[in-house]
C-alpha cells in the first residue's frame, strides 16, 4: 500500500535549514497496524503528513496505492486523499461549530454524496463507534474519549483504506485511551490499514510492527511478538 524510498524532508526558514526526515525507507502492506515511535522532534509527524498526502517530500519517492505521489499538486493530493485516507489527531480536531453528526458527515460532503447517502453512512459510522445517542451534540459537550470516538467515526465514514493516527490517546486518560486503542484494533481486524504515531509503549503494543525514528532516520523496525505479516 505504501512504499517510501529515500524520503527526505527539509524545512527551511530564512536563516536555518532543518532536516526533518533523512533517507527514510518504509513499506507498509494492506491490513498492517504500524506504530511509529521516537522522541519529540524526530520526524514522526512529518512522516505521517507525507504518508497522508498532506505534504510533499523534499526528495525521494513515495508510492501510495501504486501511484507515485512524491510530487503532486495540492489538488491532486486532495483528490487521492478523499475517501482513501482517514485521519485521527491527538487534539481530535473536530469543528466546534458543527454537531457530532455534521462533523462525521463532512468528508462525504466533499466527496459529493447525496444527502440520503450521507445520512446512512454517517449514522452507520456513529453506530459503529456507539455515538449515535450523541449525534446532535456539539464537540464541547462531549468527554475527550467521546470526541476521539467521533473523530474515528469521521475517519472511517468514507471507508478509508488507510487510517493515520497522530498520538490518538495523547489527550486522554488511560481508560479512555484504552477504549480508543481497542476501537483501532477492531478496525484493523476488519481490514483497515492503520499507521499510528505514539509516545506510549502501551499503545504501540497494539501494533504489529513498530518503527523507531531518531533525528529523521529509521533506526529500528521491530515485529511485535505474536504478530505475523
Amino acid at each position: 500500500m505504501i512504499q517510501a524510498r529515500n524520503l527526505k524532508k527539509v524545512y527551511s526558514t530564512e536563516e536555518v535549514e532543518t532536516t526533518a526526515l533523512n533517507n527514510v525507507n518504509i513499506e507498509i502492506k494492506e491490513g498492517e497496524f504500524v506504530a511509529i515511535m521516537g522522541p519529540s522532534g524526530c520526524g514522526k509527524s512529518t512522516l505521517l503528513n507525507i504518508m497522508g498526502l498532506l505534504d510533499n517530500p523534499s526528495d525521494g519517492e513515495y508510492h501510495f496505492l501504486g501511484h507515485d505521489v512524491s510530487n503532486r499538486t495540492e489538488r491532486e493530493r486532495a483528490q487521492l486523499r478523499k475517501g482513501n485516507i482517514g485521519f485521527i489527531f491527538q487534539s481530535f480536531n473536530l469543528i466546534d461549530e458543527l454537531t457530532v453528526f455534521e462533523n462525521v458527515e463532512l468528508p462525504l460532503l466533499y466527496l459529493g454524496m447525496s444527502s440520503d447517502e450521507r445520512k446512512e453512512k454517517a449514522e452507520a459510522a456513529l453506530e459503529r463507534m456507539s455515538m449515535m445517542h450523541r449525534r446532535n451534540h456539539f464537540p464541547q459537550q462531549l468527554s475527550g474519549g467521546q470526541q476521539q470516538r467521533v473523530a474515528i467515526a469521521r475517519a472511517v465514514v468514507a471507508n478509508a483504506k488507510l487510517i493515520l493516527a497522530d498520538e490518538p490517546t495523547g489527550n486522554l486518560d488511560s481508560d479512555h485511551g484504552n477504549e480508543v486503542m481497542k476501537v483501532l484494533a477492531e478496525l484493523n481486524e476488519q481490514g483497515t490499514t492503520i499507521v499510528m504515531v505514539t509516545h506510549s509503549p502501551h499503545d504501540a503494543d497494539y501494533a504489529m510492527r513498530v518503527i523507531h525514528l531518531f533525528d529523521g532516520h529509521v533506526v529500528t523496525e521491530n515485529m511485535q511478538e505474536g504478530f505475523h505479516v
Partner: peptide, 14 residues
C-alpha cells in the same frame, strides 16, 4: 484557520 485545516484534511479543496 484550524477549521480550514480540518476541512482540507477531510477532502476540501481551495
Amino acid at each position: 484557520t484550524k477549521e480550514v485545516g480540518i476541512r482540507k484534511v477531510l477532502g476540501a479543496e481551495k
